[in-house]
Design a protein around this nucleic acid. Structure first.
Lengths: 198, 198
DNA sequence: TTTTCTTGATTGACGAGTCAATAAAAAGTC
DNA sequence: GACTTTTTATTGACTCGTCAATCAAGAAAA
């Protein structure tokens, strides 16, 4: 009973299943069959829609990145001050949609994938550039020229905190993670600015 | 022509080869045969000495961690002030012995391994605890109570900078990486301390 | 002759990707 | 409205390759 227009539904289901499976397995060593089973279809169908395992992985990665991007954009549009923007970016980086066990595990593995997969590397670079540019933009009005350096360090710290979470055991606490990073930033901005709340 | 006492030599060669191969491949998807070939022996011999691929990986991880540990210990014993210790820890984290393409690639993959391998996870935890404890120790005389928080953030930043290097293309520049992290720290210690050189 | 070192050959399992075949909706055709 | 054809959805079975691990056997020190 082939319903029409299954393609996007199936693809979305496969992408979700891929993230879940990679997160569960904690590695890219997941079979197409596992992914397909979790998505409720045969492995042949997964191949039919994506062509190869590689493409499935890339689609999953794009999805994670897109979700994160949307989160950041939302936070930015809701902010009305430079400090508010910083707050938003950091908070969005640890927002519930991206800061879940499976997603963190998947993210770490996408980092690995980017070592070998040119397209994966490109995607990760896009993410890093976007993060850096957003941070710079928000920092410049506050500290001026050093914004670039500070943004670079802050970006690294965000990634570091994020990835370290993969090793922890309990539930990921996004709010705490964001607060820790923000506290750092606050200390770094130091005497320059007042510690207002956004 | 079986020379005696080959065991440690072979094992060391395999460990080196493992790090190189993982770094090259950019993933844990390296075969025992590849590793053994690079180490100049048959895969059967690799199994003979290590028993399983898993054990080879763990030995390689221990080696990386041990090297890093030695580097840090050396730097600490050469330092004579709290600031000197901080300097040493950060510099050691990006020292030439650990801050090479293959090692960085391997390190990232050990992170992944730690998701599934209990022993790998344990090893990584040991590293993180040691780093944290070292940083705390060095920070406390300077800033007192907040040392713990600052150390946590600094640790994350070190990891972040380190892992980001895996994505870069050119030669890793350990000195620059260390300088960037130290600059951050300096800014964070801010008004509290003078910017002396160690 | 016992122990250490070494490998080629083999086994056994697993997994990506293909294919032929089935089923049903949609689109055309008279 | 009753047909054929085309397109989309779907899978079980199969191919082909790969790889971890084992084993039997040889060679040389002790």
């Amino acid at each position: 009973m082939p319903k029409l227009g299954m393609k996007p539904i199936r693809k979305a289901a496969l992408v979700d299943a891929t993230i879940t499976e990679i997160g569960r397995a904690g590695s890219l060593d997941v079979t197409v069959s596992q992914i397909a089973r979790r998505a409720g279809m045969s492995s042949a169908l997964a191949h039919h829609y994506f062509g190869s395992k590689e493409q499935i992985f890339l689609a999953a990665m794009r999805h994670v990145l897109a979700t994160h991007g949307a989160e950041v954009r939302g936070a930015l549009s809701a902010a009305d001050s430079a400090r508010g923007r910083l707050n938003g970016i950091v908070r969005a980086s640890f927002a519930a949609s991206s800061f879940r066990r499976e997603v963190i595990g998947a993210w770490l593995n996408f980092y690995v994938l980017a070592q070998t997969q040119p397209e994966a590397r490109r995607l990760l670079r896009v993410y890093q550039r976007r993060l850096h540019s957003n941070l710079c933009h928000a920092l410049r009005p506050i500290i001026g020229a050093p914004a670039d350096h500070v943004a670079r360090g802050l970006g690294a710290m965000i990634d570091g905190v994020y990835i370290r979470e993969a090793l922890k055991s309990g539930r990921p606490d996004g709010a705490a993670a964001a607060a820790a990073v923000l506290a750092h930033l606050e200390r770094e901005l130091g005497s320059a600015g007042l510690s207002e709340r956004a």
